[in-house]
Design a protein around this nucleic acid. Structure first.
Lengths: 266, 266
DNA sequence: TATTAAATTATCATTTTTCGGAATGAAAGA
DNA sequence: TCTTTCATTCCGAAAAATGATAATTTAATA
């Protein structure tokens, strides 16, 4: 199913755990070996390791394996931690529901827009930015915002350094023109994209700023032009800005939790 | 605490994951290295590995780490598996039989209640939470318990971030009101739901805690109001609490079945 | 802005694990 | 009882992890 040619021991360990956790009944070594196409002795060794650490354990009276105590304890912690940090996703989901379109959060890294989280509302129709994917700077709203907030000289340098690949008829491939657009973007504080990356898909984005007004990330929406025209995009800006406000409070913010602080530091 | 002289890579990987999961805020590489007494470059390498696999991920806009999506998904599965084993399923079945209504165990993931195990007593009449299904936080007892256990400020933020969709006339869609209910829930330690998600169905739930009093999951019951009124629900609380106690005792013990195929196949 | 401290990445010889074929013991089924 | 399947142990070659050192980048501070 998911094994790339070169699995490290870690991958195999997690594959085994995942398999055991997804079974409804205790799994034998042979089951596991077969499911993950491992040599039998190897499976034994790996499972033995996991058992020693309490991540798996034998079901009493059998040689079949179920999830172990350590693993359950750890998982409970993970779920708790995830719940505490899930507010970002909650905000994203809320704004996506409000405007009824796919929303995503993206950051710029290595001169490329990387999407870190996204929520799609209904059927995958518009552009699907899946977390982990990357897109160019010059034809995405997030990229424009990022560039627009650079000091002028750095901005110009970057514009000239980038390869302004043409993806559609409306992609901006002229440096002067791009600079103009960026200046405009800087002034009004948000960006739009008119089928510049994918034909038939328009979008807009607003910045998510830290308390000291540094750019942390961008919150954007992508939608098929058949459903929302380029000019109609404007009505998304206000809700997006509200959500971005909330996100900037939420995102970094020392997630003051403290739920019983369990283990905590000694 | 956890460093034996000779830790394999696996031990260190899990130590790191455990540390990150137990922190209330995102942890920097330096934090982790210090806490586990790892050389800094080594910590970087190990954490990089975990990040590549999606087990850890950077908090947006920072270089600090939180639990990753893969890890959360896996953890939810593990908890589900832990509760589905015969012994625990038997506890669930027993309490279901005792109170004569459908009982289910749910965890929160991605701001949604996911049901990992359930037992129905008679004909499907009340609400049918089948394992794998998901329900919103603000109108389920399990969701209320989860939220009620967050520290106050985080709780308020989450309430505001959630879209309080109205499903019925009694769904709580007002943030202030929800906060009140959560406060009450926190004080008494269990939650009720008055036809807030599905018309004609009321329910209640109690927390399942780990030995160190972390919330692992919730045990709840759903029943048609025609059979049990909202106020009559109270008589289920005691049996549920007993069962929850039992479950939390057994959850970290090496019991387990094996042969008797939990939950029976569908 | 200049300066300093800290964090991160890179390199690499050494040590430690892992890997899985072959062989053997144990248990389930005929 | 016999046969087949599964569980387990051994072990040398191959691969990976390890962490010191050093170079580089980034953040903090003056």
């Amino acid at each position: 199913m998911q094994q790339l040619s070169t699995d490290g021991p870690l991958d195999r360990a997690f594959a085994i755990i995942g398999y055991v956790a997804s079974q409804t009944r205790a799994a034998s070594v042979a089951d596991i070996a077969a499911a993950l196409t491992l040599p039998l002795p190897t499976a034994h060794r790996l499972i033995g390791n996991l058992e020693q650490r309490g991540l798996l354990q034998k079901a009493v009276g059998t040689k079949r394996y179920v999830v172990g105590n350590q693993l359950v304890t750890l998982s409970a912690r993970v779920i708790g931690a995830a719940f505490r940090t899930a507010r970002r996703h909650a905000v994203l989901r809320a704004v996506a529901a409000e405007i009824g379109e796919q929303c995503e959060i993206g950051v710029v890294r290595d001169n490329v827009v990387a999407y870190v989280d996204s929520v799609r509302v209904s059927q995958p129709q518009g552009l699907q930015f899946n977390p982990g994917e990357a897109a160019p700077l010059h034809c995405t709203s997030t990229g424009k915002i990022y560039m627009s907030r650079l000091p002028e000289r750095a901005r110009e340098k970057l514009c000239r350094a980038l390869t302004l690949t043409r993806y559609t008829e409306t992609t901006i491939v002229d440096v002067e023109r791009l600079m103009e657009v960026l200046e405009e973007t800087r002034k009004r504080g948000w960006a739009k994209t008119n089928e510049e990356y994918v034909r038939g898909v328009v979008g807009c984005a607003v910045p998510i700023l830290s308390p000291d007004r540094e750019l942390i990330a961008c919150l954007g929406v992508s939608v098929p032009v058949a459903r929302v025209s380029f000019t109609e995009l404007d009505r998304f800006i206000a809700p997006l800005q509200n959500a971005a406000e909330l996100l900037s409070e939420t995102i970094l913010q020392a997630d003051e939790d403290g739920t019983s602080d369990a283990s905590g530091e000694a």
